[in-house]
Amino acid sequence: MKRFLFILPFLILVSFSKINTVKNSKTIRITPKSELQINGTSNVKDFTCAYEIQNLNKPIQIHYEKEHDIIKFEKSVLILENNGFDCGGKGINKDFHGLLQSDIYPRISLTLKQINLKSHKKNMADALIDIEIAGLTRSYHMETTYQNLENWLISGKLKLNIKDFKLEAPKKMFGLVVVSDEIEISFKLVVEES
């Protein structure tokens, strides 16, 4: 019985140690060599809205813990100001901001939730991200590639439907020009640790 009483505090300590696991934190910066764009189509012409990467010059704090091939993140958010997108002209920029309801919802947020490294595919991972557009948040899985050379190079593409966010594609010229509901977010991020 005395031996059990000696071991009991140790067992309690070990059983609760998983609850308060230590999180890792890093500060990263997205370099000007990066690219991020939204691509769309219409029945007349394709369009690209490129993000001005210099708007992402502030350091970003990420919090994570790794267990085997799974990395879980907390409070790891990338904020994109809608006015940082350039679609190539005043008219299409106005349509883009109208679509995103930029006057009410001026930013898009991308929250990294989890990465599953693919051990059977070199430099490939499945990322789970939450995307908030126009006040609505949806979760998506996205296949990404990564390399660690001098800095991290992370790239990927994600197709999504704007109707998932209750957005309505603009129609022009009395409905003769119709923009597709499906858009593609593509990125090549060069990330350095601060």
Score class of each variant (00 low, 15 high):
F6Q: 07
I7P: 05
I7C: 11
I12Q: 05
I12K: 08
L13F: 15
I19V: 14
K23C: 06
K26C: 03
T31C: 01
P32R: 06
K33P: 00
E35Y: 08
Q37D: 05
N39Q: 12
T41M: 08
T41I: 03
V44Q: 11
K45Q: 12
F47Y: 12
T48E: 10
C49R: 01
N57F: 07
K58E: 13
D69W: 05
K75F: 05
I79R: 10
L80N: 03
N82L: 09
C87E: 05
G88V: 09
G89N: 11
K90W: 06
K90M: 09
I92E: 03
H97E: 14
I108T: 09
I108Y: 00
L110E: 01
T111Q: 13
K113H: 04
Q114C: 05
I115N: 04
H120T: 14
M124C: 11
M124E: 14
A125V: 09
D126Q: 14
A134M: 06
R138T: 07
S139A: 14
H141K: 13
M142V: 15
T145I: 02
Q147E: 14
L149D: 12
E150F: 10
L167F: 03
A169N: 06
K171Q: 15
V177K: 08
V179I: 15
S180T: 08
S180C: 03
V190G: 00
V190Q: 02
V191S: 00
E193T: 13
S194N: 11
